[in-house]
Nucleic acid binder design. Structure first.
Lengths: 335, 335
DNA sequence: CTGAAAGCGCTTACAG
DNA sequence: CTGAAAGCGCTTACAG
């Protein structure tokens, strides 16, 4: 037996319209009628057909989550797992669903077309965009509501939520300098990602405030992975840093491995600070001092912004910067 | 301007039916006509409306991926990231999309209803089911096609793909015994997960084959997390194991931390073997000998099974067991 | 507060 | 190989 609006209507003795109103919480329904209909719905375990709803209303209550796969091995970073949890949880809370798109290069054209024109989703959350990616312009051109996780400097009309990367990095480096470290090195993120650039800017500002110049030998570019951090640290070692700010915990972990292999003690010879506060940070050897960013809240905030945007198209751009928190453990040599 | 089948039909000088056939690769279309229509489609960047398609055809080309959140902190295990990559990539290859459901307990009832009755998805992939979960029976009752990642022992009609956990574990433990280790301990997975039980069974079998009894003091239950492995190792230490088989790399990592704190050398005092071969395994201190399971292929296989199942409902149950591979590094003391 | 009816944009027998 | 037409299951003005 087919259970649809029609059937519920028949059994409740009302019209399809009324059942639809009950399902959609329309206030214009008599309280008694509402109860009667709801009872039937519960009895039959009725769930309105999503496709029919979308077709009639033009809304799907589905949000797309795009994670650029070009980012590659990076997806294994716990950052994404936590972000996805935040997004999924907020979607649940707002009665939406999440569709996942890992952008493999060879499928990108088709993906963009589907995102924009198939009507599968009401809006898009794009995570960790590369600066030169073609997705953002395509989304703007097609007026598809979207929110970036990670700010986008060039386009003023873009909505985003991000951690306050620059101030977070600044706090970490200022702390190392305050402890009397003289040669503070940094392993940066990739230069084509804003988070990499912003954390580097915080590093530079902290040096400047102390009247210190940026020594290019003490700056190595990483790729946000453990392996990248390891290699970058090996490049830094000959220049005798006595402290390190790594722009992610995974890179800090790689740096610790390189330091251990080179026989340098942490924090005695080299003080180390990371960024993210992933779950394993506290359990590294030694426990990692780091800049905690509210990853889960990045996800929930993105969902909330996006739903607002879908409900009120054309509203003013929204940019949210979430504060970070400096977490002191053993690796920096304080406490 | 609205771009739909009608519009494409008008511009190509054919009927809606024909455009629909072209879009769906129906062979019954004149080659010239097909080309003409395809050209118009490309020009207008036409993408058929997903909701209308689903409503008319009864298929959505969307697969649901359910990850029990009860599993909690476990989601941060790179295992899931790699599994999701495999699934997403296979879905792309088969022109399907993935909808993600992290099962938060409070939303579970609604989730199951949506999964089963909203028609949003054609089938479900369920990852790492707990043995007593209510989702599997619900899926069976409602005849929704589904595939488990991880086998399910009780229900004969269940389709699954899994790694050969028992033989993988057996190989690891047999190797430790062959190296002359006398007191091989194990940190198991949670007893309510099949993967935990299977790997434990492999451990026991390897002992038995050598005529060794199972010493309960050398068996500690973990929860597949780093923290759980750390605590389990602390419980094992007083019983002087000279080798350890940890049922996951994350737990092995925790065990290494506990061993380091206790001043035991690896592999000299205690040889250690893990399970999974996550990306960081090779970069632990010392590099971890482990049982590699083909996580990504678990994901792609699940997708392929599921799509077959959707296309041919009522076909015989499919069970796939993928072979593991023993990867020798430093932590076991061989080579 | 309620119902009849049009319409969302496709697919799919059916007839030719 | 092609087209006319019914139908998928909802939502939403509109009229009352």
């Amino acid at each position: 037996m087919k259970i649809n609006l029609e059937e519920i209507a028949r059994r409740s003795g009302v019209s399809r319209s009324t059942v639809s109103r009950v399902v959609n919480d329309d206030p214009n329904v008599n309280a008694g009628t509402r109860e009667r209909v709801k009872t039937v719905i519960r009895q039959l375990n009725f769930q309105p057909n999503a496709a029919a709803r979308s077709l009639a209303s033009g809304r799907t209550r589905v949000l797309g989550l795009v994670i650029p796969q070009g980012v590659g091995a990076l997806f294994a970073d716990p950052y994404f797992a936590i972000l996805i949890q935040g997004i999924a949880s907020a979607c649940n809370a707002h009665d939406h669903s999440v569709m996942l798109w890992l952008a493999e290069p060879e499928y990108e054209r088709r993906m963009i077309r589907q995102l924009l024109h198939s009507g599968m989703i009401d809006g898009v959350i794009v995570s960790s965009m590369l600066l030169d990616d073609s997705l953002v312009p395509a989304l703007i051109d097609n007026q598809k509501p979207f929110v970036l996780v990670g700010r986008h400097p060039s386009k003023p009309e873009v909505n985003y939520v991000d951690s306050d990367n620059e101030n977070g990095a600044w706090a970490a480096v200022a702390h190392l300098l305050r402890l009397g470290r003289q040669r503070v090195a940094t392993i940066t993120g990739p230069s084509n990602m804003v988070a990499g650039a912003d954390r580097r800017a915080g590093f530079v500002r902290a040096l400047r405030e102390r009247g210190l110049a940026l020594d290019p030998d003490l700056l190595a570019e990483g790729d946000f992975t453990e392996a990248g951090g390891y290699l970058a640290m090996q490049r830094l070692l000959p220049h005798k840093p006595d402290a390190l700010f790594a722009a992610s915990d995974m890179m800090a972990q790689g740096a610790l491995r390189a330091l251990r292999e080179a026989g340098r003690r942490v924090p005695e010879d080299v003080a180390v600070v990371g960024f993210d506060d992933i779950p394993t940070a506290a359990r590294l050897e030694p426990p990692l001092t780091t800049v905690r960013q509210p990853i889960q809240r990045l996800g929930t905030t993105a969902v909330e912004l996006l739903i607002e945007l879908i409900d009120q198209p054309g509203s003013a751009p929204r940019r949210v910067l979430l504060a970070t928190e400096f977490v002191i453990r053993k690796s920096c040599g304080a406490n």
